[in-house]
């Protein structure tokens, strides 16, 4: 590009009247090595712009597609745990009660048996006394 044209474009550029195409021309012009002394500042500027536009974002961008699914899964899991704990806890006291009732029932039954047994042994002892009385009578009579 002719130096005269460059200077014209530079003037338009300073007034922000250049099109993108014209700015591209300037960019290309200032990429060459030899630039007149009075335009060195523009070389620095255009080189900086060029350099800056080459910068890239190198980190990864976390886009969590399955995030809501996981959230619902965790809610479901917590609910499941709560339900299982609740049912486990509530069934345990009823079993204990059942065992206690059975224990009391057996105790009653055993009491009944022992009472009857006691009564039976009393009768047996009384019978034995009667037997001894009669026996002594018989032996005395001898």
């Amino acid at each position: 590009m002719e130096l005269v044209n460059v200077e014209k474009l530079i003037e338009k550029y300073e007034n922000a009247e250049t099109t993108l195409q014209e700015e591209q021309l300037l960019k290309e012009y200032f990429q060459q090595a030899d630039v007149p002394y009075h335009l060195l500042e523009y070389k620095a500027m255009f080189n900086y712009f060029d350099e800056s536009s080459a910068e890239r974002f190198t980190k990864t961008i976390p886009l969590k597609t399955n995030r809501p699914v996981w959230r619902w899964l965790s809610v479901a899991a917590v609910a499941l745990i709560m339900i299982s704990v609740y049912t486990f806890n509530s069934s345990e006291p009823s079993e204990q009660e059942k065992a206690e009732m059975a224990y009391q029932e057996t105790q009653k039954a055993l009491n009944l048996i022992s009472q009857n047994l006691n009564r039976g042994s009393n009768v047996a002892i009384a019978g034995l006394q009667e037997f001894e009385k009669t026996q002594s009578k018989v032996f005395k009579n001898d």
């Binding site: 300073e14 922000a16 620095a44 500027m45």
Partner: peptide, 21 residues
Amino acid sequence: AVRVTLSRARKTIREQLIKQH
């Protein structure tokens, strides 16, 4: 308004560069 702002910015950068130079 964009043009005015841009022109101002470009001129400032250049003037400052000349000054420092």
